[in-house]
Write a protein that binds this DNA or RNA. Structure first.
Lengths: 223, 223
DNA sequence: TCTGCAAAAGATGTCGACAATATAGCAAAT
DNA sequence: ATTTGCTATATTGTCGACATCTTTTGCAGA
């Protein structure tokens, strides 16, 4: 996954992808400071390259920069999660509606095929599905919207932050098969070219997903 | 306007704001190439500063960059307008709904006061209203949503591109008073804490606005 | 011992130079 | 005459050094 026409060309590209991956997967801790000199030795590139990578991460809302002070990785907070998922609900709901309207029959057939593969994955080794398959599913719907602004905002913008919450807070077991059923219903609505229903189902799907993560994030009384 | 806590600190900030202004207002033409060396002499700063400014403009979708080739200002196209306004409708509709829910009574009172000022402006010198007042109105609703992701995406992200379309394609005369009435109804819905209605009215308001610009953009047969 | 200023250390911001890549122009061959 | 391949030029990408700002440290005075 993650090979969605995103091919690194320059050193800044590579560093950006690597650093983003390290942050999303928690190798670089949430809330930690990003020292330019430190990172430049760690990744073996000049500070200029690091600065460009950090600038790009800032526009994804993965890091926050203050002038003359430096950059920090964002902290994962319940408020941040709510804000993020509200936006995501709105944008991906819209993507589903547009996808029902704009995807070609061939693309919809492909999407159905993907679903069948996922069905096998869930039966065999259920947990892997969530990270790779779910992202792939959502990517296809987003691309199916054919709205370039929407695609850019979601894929280059907020999606990696979504992944950061999901990877670092984990997702519970029983929801895997439930989520798969929700995907099936969404695809069915798209097959029927029913944009309104697709949007509504996608919004609920994302809402459930948010509640699921929220349960992991909110009850931190035992800490 | 445009003084929304956005204060330039570094040279890169100043250059970014200036270059963005020049592009939005058409001083730097849409579709033109942005040469780094040329801009660095023009704005009297080093190429590193120019590069940072261009990077930031790229994340606003105001310029497009290709590796080892360079950056170009985006072209204003009917498709781009539709894509942009679809997203805007969704996000600002959401902002209106959240504003009805999250703005304080004091903030709503302020908003009403702003509306009265605009009412005078329309009576006196109607045309000025559109550029300054309308933006200000929308800014307040966006900020009133209290959703930081939404605020960042709209204000740092797509709003300057919206302004670019509006400034460069102009807006017709009779719509000024119509738009003002629409603003009044939206504020009324927010006063009543009716989020659903506020969202619907905002979406229609933006839809009308899009149609208005589209009329200027599409019929280019006489060229 | 505590407060406050000052100097030093370390960070980010900016710059000019060099390296790598793409484009344009010209020459040669078909 | 057209196309192909090379060369020259110009632009972008990367680097290390210097300037400026922030933060910390340490000393002096109350």
């Amino acid at each position: 996954m993650q090979n969605l026409t995103e091919q690194p060309i320059t050193a800044a590209d590579k560093t950006f992808f690597q650093l983003r991956k390290d942050i999303v997967e928690g190798v670089v801790l949430a809330g930690s400071k990003l020292s330019e000199t430190e990172l430049s030795t760690k990744y073996g590139v000049s500070r200029a390259v690091i600065r460009e990578a950090i600038n790009r991460l800032e526009s994804c809302h993965i890091v926050e920069r203050k002038a003359n002070v430096g950059a920090r990785v964002v902290s994962l907070s319940p408020e941040g999660l709510v804000d993020l998922y509200q936006v995501r609900e709105s944008l991906e709901g819209m993507a589903a509606r547009l996808a029902a309207q704009n995807m070609t029959d061939a693309e919809i057939a492909d999407l159905n095929a993907l679903l069948n593969v996922h069905s096998e994955d869930v039966k065999n080794h259920g947990s892997y599905y969530q990270e790779a398959g779910d992202v792939d599913f959502h990517y296809r719907i987003i691309l199916g919207s054919k709205n370039n602004h929407l695609i850019a905002m979601l894929i280059n913008g907020i999606y990696h932050l979504v992944r950061m919450y999901r990877v670092q807070l984990g997702m519970s077991g029983p929801r895997v098969s439930t989520a798969f059923d929700e995907h099936k219903h969404i695809v069915q609505a798209i097959c029927n070219r029913d944009g309104e229903l697709a949007e509504m189902l996608m919004r609920r799907h994302i809402l459930y997903s948010k509640n699921n993560i929220q349960r992991k994030l909110t009850p931190q009384r035992e800490a």
